[in-house]
Design a protein around this nucleic acid. Structure first.
Lengths: 336, 336
DNA sequence: GAATGCTCGTACAACGTTGTAACACCGGTG
DNA sequence: CACCGGTGTTACAACGTTGTACGAGCATTC
């Protein structure tokens, strides 16, 4: 069917290993032999067989990306960037979904699927931040996101605290003083929710504003639905507020929708800012101010670090990288 | 490092082929031997090496999914469903993005990446519908979407014409008579745009309503941005309309945003319906009526057909399957 | 003209698996 | 007791590649 080294060798009149040498640019192949072999390769349309290469070399040329679910815009857009970054390095991406479920996350770390890839980019949600030791696996692994710090592996993340602080600063800069937070996770210290809440408190403190627990609304998963629910809860509570910091954009969009249903004017009555800079925020009405966490940079760094780890092995010191962030001002925090 | 058949065999005191027979549930292995081998397998934590299996069997246990981009919610949600459907069959998914670019789509069909998967689910956008012959490839291929009909391969698609007709009927049922269309592709007959427009016209005819070209707005890619632009163009045209059929949800959401900017009341002045049932439509204000094209069913069917094709080979007759659809009524087409 | 050093090519083994064929053993049959 | 069919196990080859070791040819050197 498809041509092999042997077929090419037969046509070129050399041994099949010589063909292999030509293909792999080994030295000590004379120009004439090289040309002869190349001609045979072209004629037969020979392409090295990847499985055989894999078997021999132990490399597959693929990496895994495990995320909660692609239906969440943030992860879809992250996957988009990861695939692009990987493509530049001639590596393909196998995507696995965990649903943020602890059991399935553990599965991803141990399943036989791991043999199909040279390493894994892993964005956990269900694992606790005290379970870092579960990440001590014998294949290259790069952690994404905020669930686990100080794990035994490379980690690429964003400047959650600083970025959240800047987002809050932005609201304060508009003259807002009663800033609600949507999407908190009670008791969490580390993790996106905990870190962003920490940044929020730091900003309040820096401006001498009081922290009011009544302004903090918990939410489970960070879906639109939960943002809507949280806002409904907040409005029912009857507590006054003039701004909202939603811990991600999906929450913000859900909350936005509820505020408008209930006749709250945005941003006149309440300004709102999200986090993630997903594309939808550009086209909501009003468009959504947000924090751009440097998704593209995260994807690029993550792929870079993983391929490095794959190449250099487990001995190299582990790396902890953070992307830059940027406040994106849109209509939902327009002054005036 | 990791155990091989030979290691297990040594421990169990049998030949390595007997171990292979146990692993593959071959008949003619005595219960005592089986038990002995199984014990050794458990003790060593043996797992068959997938590369070696692949090399031997020619199967990788992976399928490819080539889509324009995951940043488009429709494709992200489709990928989500495809991954889930594939997981049930113990197959992983390698996702490739083409950007809807003709050159990259051709690449996907011929590149050496194809060796990493047993087959491909392909959703083209850049290829013309007269280029079906390019799909005559020598690996299992299932076509998704509406770009190409009567290609030489299996095809899973949706009931575009009927569904578009039903969407238009729905608007007409509300008493709307001047129904604009956003996202047309001038001159296209086949392709999502062409087919959906055809359904629209069929509905008009069935109700004896005239077709007015002034109500049809072209758009390039079906992104929010283009929906917004198209609506701006429509409003500038000054032509009267009381409803909009946006050919997908992203266009609809972009258009919705512009209408609200310009003080058009939805649905009081203008009702709008989209197509695709992406999650965002539930949380816009007003929430977006749409057509649910049976994304999950499409994903399930596509994976099913591809795995069938992989198993049964190219001789089986090609299949053309369509998913059912459903009109999803939300606020943007609320009567009254 | 034998020894040396370099260039180029080849043979063999290995990666871990599975299919095929063959072999040893068994009780039962003619 | 030779033969048989069925059962359980083994040996060998193959999938297509690459690393290692070796060898052949040739020019240069003493």
């Amino acid at each position: 069917m498809t041509a092999t080294l042997r077929d090419v060798a037969r046509l070129a009149g050399v041994s099949f290993k010589t063909v292999s040498n030509v293909v792999n640019d080994h030295p000590y192949v004379s120009d004439t032999t090289r040309a002869k072999v190349q001609a045979a390769i072209d004629e037969l349309g020979y392409r090295p067989n990847r499985q055989a290469r894999s078997l021999r070399s132990g490399r597959t040329g693929a990496i895994g990306l495990a995320v909660p679910e692609l239906s969440l815009a943030y992860f879809a857009q992250l996957a988009d960037e990861v695939i692009n970054a990987a493509e530049k390095r001639d590596v393909v991406v196998v995507i696995e979904q965990t649903g943020g479920d602890r059991r399935r996350e553990l599965d991803v770390l141990s399943g036989s699927r791991r043999q199909l890839t040279d390493g894994l980019l892993f964005s956990p949600l269900g694992l606790g931040n005290d379970e870092g030791d579960l990440l001590a696996v014998d294949f290259p692994l790069v952690l994404l996101g905020e669930r686990i710090f100080d794990g035994p592996v490379d980690h690429v993340t964003m400047e959650n605290v600083d970025a959240a602080r800047a987002a809050t600063d932005h609201l304060i800069g508009l003259g807002r003083r009663r800033i609600a937070v949507i999407g908190a996770h009670e008791g969490e210290v580390i993790g996106s929710a905990g870190l962003r809440l920490h940044g929020y408190r730091a900003a309040l403190e820096a401006h001498g504003l009081p922290f009011d627990k009544a302004l903090i609304v918990d939410a489970g998963p960070w879906h639109r639905f939960n943002g809507a629910e949280a806002m409904r809860a907040l409005l029912e509570r009857g507590v006054e507020f003039d701004a909202v910091f939603a811990l991600n954009d999906e929450l913000a969009l859900g909350a936005l929708r509820v505020m408008q249903e209930q006749g709250v004017r945005v941003p006149a009555d309440v300004a709102i800012i999200g986090f993630d800079d997903v594309d939808e925020g550009k086209y909501s009405l009003p468009s959504l101010s947000t924090v751009d966490p440097g998704r593209r940079e995260i994807a690029r760094l993550a792929v870079e670090v993983l391929l490095d780890r794959i190449e250099k092995g487990p001995e190299e010191p582990r790396r902890e990288l953070r992307s830059g962030y940027r406040i994106v001002e849109r209509e939902s925090t327009q002054p005036g």
